[in-house]
């Protein structure tokens, strides 16, 4: 019963959102419309990102020494999402010549620093693990 009530509340909330989308004059259709953006998220995740992750994991499992596998996985969990969410700033798509206070950092250098730190941590953790194993 509780679940049915919660479920009904959820349906009502989502239906209100759907009604807002349909009635407030949004650009729903077309390649740059809401529907395309909604669908693209699912397709890009399930069809590209998830597959890419599996391929990368497969390559890492084949090439990486045993001691490096867990540190590599952690490094990927940290750096992968961080890279994705940095796409808007890395690409500087919103930068404007008349506003030097927006996107005013060297994002490539920032990303490289974070990637370097992650790589360093992965290498150190792998060496520590392989030493422990060696004993």
């Amino acid at each position: 019963m509780t679940r049915i009530v919660i479920g009904a509340v959820g349906v009502a909330l989502a239906a209100y959102g759907g009604w807002l989308l349909l009635t407030r004059g949004h650009d729903l259709l077309g390649l740059d419309g809401v529907v395309a953006w909604l669908a693209a998220g699912v397709v890009l995740h399930d069809g590209v990102l998830a597959v890419l992750t599996i391929v990368l994991a497969g390559v890492a499992l084949r090439l990486a020494p045993t001691a490096a596998r867990a540190p590599l996985a952690v490094g990927f969990v940290v750096l992968g999402p961080l890279t994705l969410l940095a796409v808007p700033v890395l690409g500087r798509f919103g930068a404007r010549a008349d506003n030097p206070t927006l996107l005013d950092r060297d994002y490539t250098a920032g990303w490289l620093a974070l990637a370097g730190l992650t790589a360093l941590a992965v290498v150190v953790a792998s060496l520590v693990r392989s030493r422990r194993r060696g004993r």
Binding site: I6, G7, V9, G10, V11, A12, L13, A14, A15, Y16, G17, G18, L20, L21, R24, H26, D27, L28, G30, D32, G33, V34, W37, L38, P88, V89, G91, F93, G94, R96, L102, L103
Partner: peptide, 29 residues
């Protein structure tokens, strides 16, 4: 990041979709 690669109004589409997302989340729970 003030990047708008779409045709719709950000404020009203983000607002409407927020209701869809929270509703679908409650259904999922």
């Amino acid at each position: 990041a003030q990047w708008y690669p779409w045709a719709f109004s950000f404020r009203s589409a983000h607002y409407a979709t927020a209701w869809v997302a929270i509703g679908a989340l409650v259904v999922h729970v």
